[in-house]
């Protein structure tokens, strides 16, 4: 991801050069053909992997979604019946609404915090900046499974150290895994996991803002906050927009944290808590592979629409060529 964000900048500066090369004299054409022939060989491994690990599984999922396997009666073609069942499933859509609510809160909070800390570290006003940047990044290095385990222990009803701490300051008896608070708890875990990662990308983007611009602003008498809000952040808005969509797609695929929590707090996480859990539990839990595949396709379409929407939007803003 860091590569991508750096890439956006470098692509932009490289673009004029590329364009110049393609509009060269006709004599270069033969050389270019040869280069493209070689190019195919360079592209081939990627295409093979793409086919094996993207197109084939996608095709298999589509194929599976058109069949229904019954314990009595075996497998038979069922057309779009699985899709009709998914679209009519209140459990599935309740899960979609839940992750949408999750995203509406988690994504802005994560990016807001990330931008705040990135700006502070970028300005160099914090002591031991390098050390704290590392500390902030550590949660991302912790696998999501471990993070979920860790938090479910820290917030364990009655016995978790943080639960006791909260009890000592007047929040005794709070169950962080009750049906009311479970989503907030998961948001807390995910924000904890991802803020450092987002911060690192934004920090890198901020560092790429030319010094002269900032110097000019400072000479003109702009305050710190003004430099950040009016100069630096607007200049890294492409990175922020990209993070927005990455986080959004990630939020819609929420799976690991609730599925781990459900092992310890089974009453808190229903089998269709998120759309991905619905997919998993119908395919693996109740052996309805066709239904699970159909749900996966529907979810994939929703996420695909959001991704395409983001591409179009960014293109209109002129961020992508």
């Amino acid at each position: 991801m860091i590569g991508t964000s750096v890439g956006v900048g470098s692509l932009r500066s490289a673009a004029p050069a590329t364009r110049a090369a393609t509009s060269g004299p006709i004599g270069r054409r033969a050389r270019r053909d040869r280069r493209e022939r070689h190019g195919r060989w360079f592209v081939a491994p990627f295409l093979v992997v793409l086919t094996l690990f993207m197109f084939v599984p996608l095709g298999y999922a589509l194929y599976t979604s058109l069949f229904t396997t019954k314990l009595i009666g075996g497998t038979s073609f069922s057309g779009l019946a699985n899709y009709r069942q998914v679209l009519a499933s209140s459990d599935f859509w309740a899960g979609v609404r839940r992750v949408a609510l999750f995203a509406v809160i988690q994504v802005p909070v994560t990016i807001g915090l990330a931008a705040f800390f990135a700006a502070i570290f970028d300005l160099g006003v914090a002591k031991f900046g390098r050390f704290f940047r590392l500390v902030f990044f550590i949660p991302f290095a912790v696998p999501a499974v471990v993070a979920a385990l860790m938090w479910s222990f820290l917030l364990l009803p009655q016995f978790g150290p943080y639960t006791r701490l909260a009890g000592a300051v007047g929040f005794a008896g709070t169950n962080y895994f009750s049906s009311k608070l479970i989503l907030a708890t998961i948001i807390l875990i995910v924000v904890w996991e991802w803020t450092g990662y987002n911060m690192t990308i934004l920090y890198t983007a901020l560092k790429a803002v030319p010094r002269e611009v900032v110097e000019a602003a400072v000479i003109d008498g702009a305050s710190f906050s003004r430099v950040i809000l009016r100069v630096k952040l607007p200049m890294v808005s492409p990175a922020i927009v990209m993070l927005l969509f990455l986080n959004l797609v990630g939020a819609l695929q929420l799976f690991t944290e609730p599925s781990i929590l459900s092992a310890f707090q089974p009453q808190a996480v229903s089998f269709a808590f998120t759309p991905t859990l619905y997919v998993y539990n119908t395919a693996i839990g109740s052996n309805e592979y066709g239904l699970g595949a159909a749900a996966a396709v529907v979810l994939g379409l929703v996420i695909g629409l959001i991704s395409v929407g983001s591409l179009l939007w960014r293109r209109r803003r002129g961020e992508l060529a």
Binding site: V145, V146, M150, F153, S262, A263
Partner: peptide, 20 residues
């Protein structure tokens, strides 16, 4: 229903010997 916990435990015991 605790089998997830089992798998989780298997994955994480090294990292979490002292915590989770």
């Amino acid at each position: 229903r605790r089998s997830v916990a089992a798998r989780v435990g298997a994955l994480s015991v090294g990292a979490l010997a002292l915590t989770g």
